[in-house]
């Protein structure tokens, strides 16, 4: 085949593709991403300062501190948000409100149960949350019909007059369980 005809033969298809197809169909690329996650139910319990109570350190977390500082049955300083009640000649009590916040996720539950237990045995002082005495022997139920969200409880510590002056400290362990 003459070279000129060969060149036309080779070039002509290019012209056909260019001019004869008109608007060519858009070129595309595709990909897929398969996503999986297994959702487990969960519950959250945090403690926060009550508007009328003693300021908690690390308020809004699950590990807070209520530091009353130096207090005495008679005279002395009473921290803001703390109430002191003297029951002479037997004992005196300090108390303050605080707020537990309980939330539940991905579980059908209308209420929760909240318990409290002292970390270390204390046979001298009386530790209480609301009207419930809290000991280290077993977890005491504070409520079995708790409503999710924010609630208010009152912590109190009763100190007998017979107790020697010094540091009183302990940890209260709270557990919230979805009903």
């Amino acid at each position: 085949m003459p070279m000129k005809k060969l060149y036309v033969f080779l070039t002509l298809p290019l012209f056909i593709v260019t001019f004869c197809i008109g608007t060519a169909s858009a070129t595309t690329g595709s990909a897929t991403m398969a996503v999986t996650v297994t959702v487990a139910s969960s519950i959250s319990l945090i403690l926060q300062t009550d508007a009328s109570g003693l300021t908690l350190t690390n308020s809004g977390t699950s590990a807070v501190t209520a530091a009353f500082g130096t207090m005495s049955a008679y005279g002395g300083t009473v921290p803001t948000g703390v109430t002191r009640t003297v029951n002479a000649p037997t004992n005196w009590k300090i108390s303050t409100p605080f707020d537990p916040v309980v939330q539940v996720a991905n579980q059908t539950s209308a209420t929760y149960t909240l318990t409290a237990q002292l970390q270390t045995a204390d046979s001298t002082n009386t530790w209480a949350i609301g009207a419930t005495t809290v000991t280290s022997a077993s977890a005491a139920t504070l409520t079995s019909t708790g409503t999710y969200g924010t609630s208010a409880l009152t912590f109190s510590l009763t100190i007998p007059f017979s107790e020697t002056a010094g540091l009183v400290s302990n940890t209260i362990n709270f557990v919230a369980t979805a009903n």
Binding site: T27, T28, T32, V37, V104, N106
Partner: peptide, 24 residues
């Protein structure tokens, strides 16, 4: 990529496929 799950949803497996397409 972000997946938002409501608290009201029951526990279990969430799965789906995302189809992506690029066009010149």
């Amino acid at each position: 990529f972000a997946l938002t799950i409501p608290f009201s949803e029951s526990s279990g497996t969430i799965s789906n496929q995302i189809n992506l397409l690029s066009v010149c």
